[in-house]
Amino acid sequence: MLLRLRGVHVSIGEITIIHDVSLEVRKGEVVALLGSNGAGKTTLFKAIAGVIKPSRGAIEFEGEEIQHLPADKVVQRGLVLCPEGRQLFPQLSVYKNLLLGAYVRRKEKKKVEQTLEWVYALFPILRERREQPAGTLSGGEQQMLAIGRALMSGPKVLLLDEPTMGLAPLVVARIAEVIKEISKAGTTVFLSEQNAHMALKITERGYVLENGRVVLEGPSARLIEDPVVKRAYLGV
């Protein structure tokens, strides 16, 4: 088991956002985390990435508990979050953003070079714009840069938090393609989405989060037929 959560609770201030969440992501899988706005997807992902600490429960990565580790140590182990809102360095160039993405393996120059070429191949627009400050890119391009930056560290697991939020359908399609390619290249992907349609098409399994609890889980093909999912997330 690559990633396993056991009875995770997360509180921000006085309020408990995540209640007793247990889930698993196996090596090589593409897993969806569905949920509406405010369901707790972002909070859960931040807790996995070490940005906030769970108040209870355990997060295991490659069999070791990581819930006490700071975010930078989690990245070093190969678990990387591509965050909601992208969190780019707006005044730094596209190239520097990507280079900083590879910060944890800065000593492996050759691998960084290869990954950079791969990221440029996935998103050719980033090569074109490499000298431009990240803040001047369009929303879609910034999302591509955020994904590219996360890939630069060569993660074993990539957590993608709402990568298609607010983007045009054409860009959404491109990002779905890229997620499949990332998976094919050997990276395990855990994808949080409000866009259940897209998410369930490109994933094998999924979890549905409601009010901070996992209310449903199963193969994507079955979730897509589930009446609750249909009503709540597919707008049928």
Partner: peptide, 20 residues
């Protein structure tokens, strides 16, 4: 560059593995 990164987006810096 890590100094600029932390100044421009602290959380972003943490997420690329920079020890703030």
């Amino acid at each position: 560059a890590t100094i600029e990164a932390v100044a421009q987006n602290r959380e972003g810096a943490m997420l690329v593995g920079i020890n703030v």
